Computed example of a mutant assay.
Amino acid sequence: MRLPLGRLLPVAILSAAVALAGCSTTGTEDSSEPAATSSAAAQFPVTIPTAFGDITVPKQPSRVVALGWSDADVALSLGVQPVGASDWLAFGGDGQGPWNAGKYTTAPTILGTLELDMEKVAALKPDLILDTRSSGEKARYDQLAKLGVPVVDVPKGGEMYLTSWEQQLDMIGKALGKQTEAAKLKTDLDAKFTAAAQANPSFSGKTVSAIARTGDGWGAYVTGDGRVDFLQKLGLKNAPKIEALKKDSFYIPLSNEQLDLADANVTVVFLIQATLDQVKSDKIFQAVPSVKAGHVAYMDDKDISNAFSSSSVAGLSYAVDKVTPLLASALG
């Protein structure tokens, strides 16, 4: 089945301890847990600015439904197990990538992504709905808001599917009463990026083109997309000729005649409904100078590609470990 361009979102559409009936606590049972839970509960009520106004979460939620792209991923990173979740990247099972393997004690009910089954959502009796990286459509928000529980949608001033990993982490951390934990995760990932960049000084100032081969053809990502932001945090610079095409989208379709724009110090290729064989047999793409010279990194490992696409704090941390050596090798 061919997915809409939404499958490219952000970052890549347009490009809940012990599970007490799905309770969202962590399952940690040491003596510090009651104090930690009490501390989190003391933070409420909290108010979170969203595109649809300020949303107040009156008390620490215990039945979280995570609908937005990577919302469940982030909740798990904060020690909260959603009772329902959307599997945007089609992982199957509990809807999580390898960076979150084993974090559920009870698997969530898997829900829809673009289309919502409201009866299924309502049956979970949520006391908080997360939809922080989604279409940002008011009709979707209004549909969810009818359930009478707080809906934390895209951030104020945000655009469809372009909620950054930092914004997503901050919003979900606050909604779950996990602000301290969220701040630490952010600090740790920032430090990881810095360490990777410092360990690879050859990245500094080098140009990179983030290219996608999809079922519909070629395209390139520009600043604002999580893939490009990731590469820039490592010290690389998005190819100026591609960046110059940026308008109101993070993804630019490229015709065969424009493939020369993929030339850079290193070309990074993402495969979406396409195979590595297709790319390597494409004579026009293989003639791009950087590709021809071997300065190309193919993101054909599904786990790596999904880590990029998750644009979550845990997924990106995983990607730093896996992608950095590939880039270093491609740069030579």
Rank of each mutant, 00 (worst) to 15 (best):
259 L>T: 14
284 I>H: 09
251 Y>L: 04
238 N>H: 11
235 G>A: 13
306 N>R: 14
231 L>H: 01
318 Y>C: 10
275 T>Q: 13
293 A>E: 04
244 A>E: 12
236 L>W: 01
275 T>M: 11
261 L>G: 02
317 S>I: 10
311 S>D: 10
276 L>F: 07
317 S>T: 15
293 A>S: 04
219 G>Y: 05
249 S>G: 09
298 Y>S: 11
250 F>M: 07
279 V>D: 12
212 A>Q: 10
286 Q>N: 07
266 V>D: 02
289 P>R: 13
218 W>N: 10
218 W>A: 04
224 G>A: 02
226 G>C: 05
312 S>Q: 09
210 A>C: 12
209 S>P: 08
315 G>V: 03
265 N>C: 03
251 Y>V: 07
269 V>F: 05
286 Q>K: 01
223 T>F: 06
296 V>H: 08
252 I>W: 00
229 D>A: 04
227 R>N: 11
256 N>S: 10
251 Y>G: 11
240 P>S: 11
281 S>F: 01
298 Y>I: 00
275 T>V: 04
238 N>W: 03
270 F>H: 10
245 L>R: 14
319 A>S: 08
298 Y>L: 13
321 D>R: 06
209 S>I: 13
234 L>T: 01
244 A>C: 10
238 N>F: 03
214 T>P: 15
260 D>F: 14
307 A>Y: 01
319 A>M: 05
230 F>C: 13
241 K>G: 10
229 D>M: 02
303 D>H: 12
230 F>S: 12
313 V>Y: 00
303 D>P: 01
276 L>N: 11
259 L>E: 06
286 Q>G: 08
270 F>E: 08
317 S>H: 11
315 G>I: 05
266 V>F: 01
